[in-house]
């Protein structure tokens, strides 16, 4: 369950830029890893418990996004995706070669001094909290002026720009917000694993899974990522336990292929069915989103 909540939080925060604006980031795991390293370093050097300092992980990731984001958000389509992927690879490479950050061996974090069950439930509640926060923020963005700007960018960026929207600023704001939430989740995750290495917290599989879930559920609305994260986490866990990890990854890959044919995801399909029914029964026409 903790993992499901984590993926809900991650794919919700990805959706702010990737879903509403259609800027598909392949490298969100960079922000996740930065959050994890920030809280780990704070614990080891300052002695602050990550369960208190995880918002600082988010701040660090947001700052990083603000610094590197400006040139990146001006790229379009797959070039944006590839560059975000490269940013994730480069950050992980830099961490691997920095002895102060533990290099490839990573950092050991002493676990909280409490019984294992209490420990588990603590992380459970924190991840649930993060899932709620991320979902809330994303739902808020959807109905805010920022969300309106992002959706205008998705539909036609040139027109949005011509209508007076500062598209670069909007995209950058979305990226920073999204990175901050991702970094907060990362800050908790590093402590949950009690072992922070580049292999674990910059794992590209996490980076791909989080946006697959958003796309699968439908990333035009905040309900989608929740649906996608729950269904795909359960499916992935089931396949991994019963058949094997490779089959689970193959299923994820197939879902990614499938998603291209249903750009609005599960939520879009559900919408279509319900709208058709309403029309058939003489109900109101749904508003085009």
């Amino acid at each position: 369950m903790t993992v499901i909540f984590m993926y809900i939080a991650l794919s919700e925060s990805w959706t702010i830029l990737g879903g509403y604006a259609g800027y598909v980031s392949f490298g969100h795991v960079a922000f996740f890893g930065i959050g994890a390293y920030t809280t780990a370093l704070l614990l080891l050097h300052v002695g602050v418990n990550p369960l208190f300092s995880f918002p600082l992980g988010g701040v660090a990731a947001a700052l990083f996004a603000a610094v590197v984001g400006y040139p990146i958000v001006r790229l379009q389509g797959p070039y944006f995706s590839i560059v975000t992927l490269l940013v994730a690879l480069l950050t992980s490479l830099v961490v691997k070669n920095t002895p102060a950050l533990g290099g490839t061996t990573g950092l050991w974090l002493p676990l909280p001094d409490m019984p294992i069950e209490l420990n588990r439930t603590t992380f459970y509640w924190f991840m649930l909290f993060m899932a709620l926060v991320a979902t809330g923020v994303t739902a808020w963005v959807e109905n805010s002026k920022l969300g309106l700007g992002l959706m205008a960018i998705r539909q036609n960026e040139a027109v949005a720009e011509a209508a007076g929207a500062n598209t670069t600023y909007i995209k950058l704001a979305a990226l920073v917000l999204s990175a901050g939430l991702t970094g907060m989740v990362g800050g908790i995750y590093g402590y949950l694993r009690s072992y922070v290495t580049p292999e674990i917290v910059f794992d590209l599989n996490i980076g791909v899974t989080l946006f697959l879930m958003a796309l699968f559920g439908g990333c035009r609305r905040w309900q989608g990522p929740v649906l996608g994260a729950v269904i795909l986490s359960v499916l992935g866990e089931f396949l991994t336990l019963n058949i094997g990890e490779e089959i689970a990854r193959i299923a994820y890959g197939l879902c990614l292929v499938l998603v291209v044919f249903f750009p609005d995801g599960l939520v879009g399909i559900i919408d279509k069915i319900t709208v058709n029914r309403k029309v058939a029964f003489g109900g109101k026409h749904a508003v085009e989103r």
Partner: peptide, 16 residues
């Protein structure tokens, strides 16, 4: 963009 998502999925399937 849509083909890059599609082919990323294909690449993951092939790799595994």
């Amino acid at each position: 963009l849509s083909t890059s998502i599609l082919t990323l999925g294909l690449a993951i399937v092939l790799e595994n």
